[in-house]
Structure formats: structure tokens, C-alpha cells
Nucleic acid binder design. Structure first.
Lengths: 209, 209, 209, 209
DNA sequence: AATGAATGAGGATTCATTCAT
DNA sequence: AATGAATGAATCCTCATTCAT
């Protein structure tokens, strides 16, 4: 049965697009890729399903856009570590703290991305591709940070430490999703940063001797 | 109105149930909760959809059973670390290696479980509940291991280190799902075990001084 | 999923048949012909669906048996009017009172029968045929009673009055089904009996003059 | 995955809704609530099942709409008794005749409503609620008519006579459904009207004395 | 006398998508 | 820029029924 809400304002493409994406973030966060139906997005945003297709080519396109926008929101929330003269451990811990906080504020991109990444469907959704793309960006930044703060590491070690660092971040995020608000995510990220840093230093020192 | 067709094979409940679960593991691993259709499971296992409903109350029930059986398979694959006289770091590394190997062999339970756990649907699927239950078992085992090998830790530290250890395992698993066979999961788990162990020792020593 | 109850006693055909009919009366009374599923009957009586088919040829057969048994229960509840020397109006009122009371006690036969009779499905269910059969019996009894108590009526008038009498009973039963326990069915049946009797007398007198 | 077919006719909501209701009246009249399948309605009206769900929320909603529209059709068919100067018995007989004729022409509302009313399903269908609502309207009209034509009746007697009058109408309708075209429904309604009227007069006179 | 297991057909409903307006 | 109406395919699940044991 038709349940469209009454028109609230005259046509405004940008605003409508935003409302659709807002609704889609909510639904995808709740139900994942397959669980997200255009009808559900329509019900939440108040626009008819056909209007969603005016703004987005298809469901895949919509979800890729959700990931993209959500990643940008998240990136904006990760403030860059300020003081370039501080000690390496300080700087790396500061970054970890920022990431932890950003994940508390804008976690949609990561939650949805991880869901997409855990699936193995034959035809890869564009949202998954998009997630892997933006994740690569994050990966490179971490690698650059490690190389900067712990010089002298061989590329293979940098790669391993970066993977370990990012994987740990993912795991801690998942842990908080499971265990809820009681988890002190900032503290865990600080621990993580310290362990990664010390491992890097040890490898670096072992190699230079 | 509806007429039943002639029987084709002798009824065998246990065997049929197994075939259904085998098919369901495969599909859920590929497509997650919503993406798993009874029709697809039926196509893979060769039994009609209505027969699936003889063995399982509904889709939810089927997926919970998948998680349960998959966890048991996984548990059996994690061999307990043998030599009780070995050094703690040796023993903990051995466990990590076993976990890494088991996740390479029987990862369905964890992949599906993580998917379910990342969703936030209002009505919690039974599969999610089941995953949280078995995950709690794993959690307790890790905690016991830490307390055994690094005595003198306060409960709060044990809790934090256990969370960190399990979260790291999750993250590394996800990393391998993303990056594929090129990842040396065993090596990463060894690194993870060492870092957790050293952190535990440091906390323990700091506290005892 | 299989949900059969544990065996409660050794095989006993009569008892099982009774349990099935008891369950079927309940379900058909609630949901009508189409709404009654073998699975629902099975769930209520605790016997597996296949056992129901051991006792009854098919669903149609089961429902016809429900009607038949329910009608017999009802017939037994209608006590015959006792005093043969009483005045006609007394006797007819007494009968009406008995019918009213029996409909308060054992109304399944009529409720289910009316449901079947209001449908117009192409293939007539055996239950409907059965209901029409037993209803015809009731019709004949009423006709005999009218002819006995108000002699001299032409057959056409007897037929009309009988139809009117039975139709009124049906309508009053429906009225009570709708309006609930607050309805004084006995009082309404007394009124009905008196009006039918007086109409009969008037017709008879008019004809004899 | 699913691709839509080309449009075949210009969209016209009102007309489609009418076609669906026309089909639904026919099917519900034949098979009752449970027996009415959306697929059958779709086959009769020519619109695909999914289109029915554009116009009606679910099957319950459709059947409630059927009752509502059918009642309106019936109400329109019951012409109001014309001559306000005629004798009360004349006027009441005229009304009864009109009701009888209307039930011969547009009986769907009553047949379907009675089916719904005889069921006792735990979750009450909206169609049932709708039927009770419109039936209440009919009830009030009859009560008003009785009060107008036989003044001086106490409210309790009006209530009882109204119930008896409406119940008789239901019963006579059922009788014709069973016995078929051979029944002279108009004659039976005339008899019914006369008996109710005379009973009312007698009660009124008895009370005033 | 009974039942565990199975089966094809069909149940209501939702799906992603299209298109004329 | 937007939407009412429509649509075929697919969704989960229940149906009446059968049959080997």
C-alpha cells in the first residue's frame, strides 16, 4: 500500500540525496547489504522508491555512495596528530587515540565495510570495492607513519607491522561492537599503539645490529 | 489438491540434516544471513525446501545450527598445546599457531559470526546469540591461559589483555579474508602472541614491584 | 521441525481418534474449513500428521467426521419435551428452551456447519453435505412438531413455518455468537417459539374458516 | 537480478483498485477468508499479485475493503420506505420487502460478514471488525424504525425486538443460501416483519395498561 | 496402530526495478 | 526533480499428502 509522506518542501536535489543517504546509512548499519531494501530506505527517508532511483542508478550504487560518504565523514573525524616535535611514541599514541575516538563517533563506514568484506559473493558489490579502496588509503597512511617514526625498517617488516596495526584496529572495533559501551576503546587503542611501536623498534634495532 | 511424488531414497534423518548443514555453511559463508536463501541451500543439498523445514524450524534456526556445528568443528581443530613443561612464551606461541591454522581450515564459524555481530537488527537472530555464546567460551579459555602463564595479574588486567588478544585474532582473521592467501597468518599470530605475552609480563612485573 | 510429543500410552485407536476429533473441533471452530490445517490439528492433539491420516482418509473426511460427531453431541443435548399432556404453546416453548440451552453448550456443529454452508466453493466439501443431511433431520422434527401441535395446516404453510422457525434459530444463534454472553438466548428462543406458534394458529384458523 | 517487463497499459490507480475489489468480492463470496488467495484474486482481475499489494496493505486490508464497499452497495440498494403517511405495518412490511430484495441482489457483504463472524480466530481480522461496525449501523436503523412506529416501548424491549428482527433477517438469508432460488425470500421477510410488529404492539399495549 | 521423513504445490508477501507522467 | 503505479522474480514458509518402516 502506498505510504508516501506528504511533500515537505519544494524539489531540492541535494537535500533529497542527503535524506536518502542518511536513511541508507541507518538501514545498512542495521541489516547489511542484502538486508537493506529500497522499500526500507524509502520508508525511513520519506521519499518514494522511484525517487531513490532518480538519485542512484541502483541499490549497489546507493550502497557504494553510503560507504564513500561515510568514509569521508570518518576521515574528517580523524584529526591529524599535531605536534611534529613530540616523541614518536607520543605521536603514535595520539594518532591511535584519534582513531579510537573517530570510530566511536562515525563507525558506519567500518561496520558496513567489514560486513561487505566478510562476504564472498561471486559478483563483488561496488560497495566492497569502494571499501577496499578507502581502506587502502588508511593502510598507506599507517605505513608512512611507521616508516617516519621508526626509520630503518625493511619494507617487509613495515608491511607486516602495518597489517598488524590495521588488523588490531579492526579487531578492537569489532570487540566494542560486541561488548558495548562498557569497553574503553581509547585505552585499548593506546595499548595497541604502544605494542606496535615497541615491536617496530625491536625489529629495527635487531636489523641494524 | 497437492499430490505427493513417489519417494526416491530411504528416509534418513541424520544424513539429511548433515547435508542441509553442509550446504548451509557454504551459502552463509558466501552471502551472510540475509543473502542465504532457503532455495539456494535446497539447490546445493538436493533436498526440497520443504524438507529443510522438517529438520529446522526456520531460517534462523538453521543458521544458529550452522554456527553451533561450525564452532564445534573449529574447537576440535584447535589442538591443545602439548608440552606442559615448555616455557610460557613457547606454549602461548604454540597456541597462537594452532589457532591460526584452525582459522585457515575451519573459518566458517568466525566469518559468519562476525557478520552477524556487525549487524544491529532490532530482533536479534538466534545465530548471533549462539555466536556470542561460543565466543564467550573461547574468551574464557584465553583468560585461563593468561592467568596460568603469567601469574600475579590483577583481574582487570587479565580482562583487558584477553579482550586485546581475542580482538587481535579477529582482526588478523579479517585481514586474511581481505588480503587473501598471500598473508602469512601463522607468522602474524606468532607476533600477536609474543606482544600480548610481553605486555602481560610487563604489567605483572610493574604491579609486583 | 519435528515437534511430536512423547508417547503417553500404548497404541489405542479409539482414544487417538477421539483426541484427533477433539483437536479438530477446536481448530475448525476457530478457523473454518480452509483455515484448519492438519499441522494445527496435529499440534493440538499431540499426534503426528501422518497418524491423522491413519484414522481419516483426508482433511475432508476429518471435517465431515467432526460435523457428524458434533451433531450427535448436540442431539443428545436436546432433551425431548417431556409432558405430552401440556398445552401446545407450553410444549413448543419447552422445546425452544431446550434448543437454546443445547446451542449454548454444544454449538460447534452449528457454527462450523453455517460456515460451510455460506461458502460457495465449486467442489462441495463432504462436511457441507453432512451438515445439510443432519440439518434436514432437524427440519423434519420441527415440521412434525408443528403439524402435531397445530393440526389442520396445509403442507405449504407447514413448510414455510418450519423454514421460518429454523431460520430464526440460526439467526438467534448467530446473534449470540456476535453479541456474546450478554445475550439471553433462552428468552429470545421463547419469544421466537411463541411468535411461530401464534402465526401457525392464525394461519390454521384462517384456513379452516 | 529481477528485471521489470515493459508496461502494457497506462497506470490508473482508481480503476485498478476497482478491478481488484470486484475480483475479491467474487472470490471471498465463494471461499471465505482463508480460502481467498491473492493468486486467485490476481487471476480474476488480471493484475499481478504484487500490484494488489500496491493498493492494499495485505490480505486482511483487502478483505476489510471488500466488506466496506459491499456494505455501501447494499445500503444503496435498500431504498428507504417511501410513504410516510402509510400505516405502520404497511411501512414496516415495505422495509422488509426492500431488505429482502437487496439481499437477493447484493448479498456479498452479508455472506462474507457472517462467515467472518462465525470464526473465532485469536487475532480478529479487520474484515470482521468492519462487518461488526456496519452491522451496528443497520441495527440502529431498525431500532429507530421500531421506536418510531410503535411508540411507548421501553428501551429493553426495543433492544430485544431489534435483536430478534436482525437475527431473523440473518437466519432467513442463510436459509435462502442453503435452500436456493426456490425460496420466496420476500414472502418470508413479510411474515417476519408482521410477527415482529405484532409482538411489538402487544408488548407496548401490555406495558401501557 | 503408528510415525519419521519427505515432497511438490501453493500460501502471503517483498524484492529491485521501470516508466509514463 | 520527482512519483504513482506497476511488474516478474524471488522471498520464507505452510499445505495436504504419502510411504517405508
Amino acid at each position: 500500500m502506498n505510504q508516501a509522506a506528504p511533500r515537505r518542501q519544494r524539489a531540492n536535489g541535494v537535500e533529497s540525496r542527503r535524506r536518502i543517504l542518511d536513511a541508507a546509512v541507518q538501514i545498512t548499519g542495521e541489516r547489511g547489504y542484502e538486508g537493506t531494501s529500497i522499500a526500507a530506505v524509502s520508508a525511513v527517508c520519506g521519499l518514494p522508491a522511484s525517487s531513490i532511483y532518480w538519485h542512484f542508478k541502483d541499490k549497489d550504487d546507493l550502497i557504494a555512495a553510503v560507504i564513500e560518504r561515510s568514509f569521508e565523514t570518518w576521515l574528517a573525524a580523524v584529526e591529524l596528530p599535531g605536534d611534529e616535535t613530540a616523541a614518536p611514541l607520543e605521536r603514535i599514541t595520539e594518532l591511535a587515540r584519534n582513531v579510537a575516538k573517530s570510530l566511536l563517533e562515525a563507525p558506519d563506514f567500518l561496520r558496513l565495510g567489514l560486513m561487505l568484506v566478510l562476504e564472498r559473493r561471486p559478483e563483488e558489490p561496488r560497495g566492497r570495492v569502494e571499501f577496499l579502496r578507502v581502506r587502502e588509503i588508511a593502510h598507506e597512511r599507517v605505513a608512512a607513519m611507521i616508516e617516519l617514526l621508526v626509520p630503518g625498517l625493511d619494507p617487509e617488516s613495515v608491511r607486516m607491522l602495518t597489517s598488524y596495526a590495521v588488523a588490531g584496529a579492526d579487531g578492537l572495533f569489532v570487540h566494542r561492537e560486541i561488548a558495548g559501551d562498557g569497553v574503553d576503546l581509547v585505552q585499548l587503542f593506546e595499548l595497541h599503539a604502544r605494542l606496535v611501536y615497541e615491536a617496530a623498534v625491536r625489529i629495527s634495532e635487531g636489523a641494524s645490529r
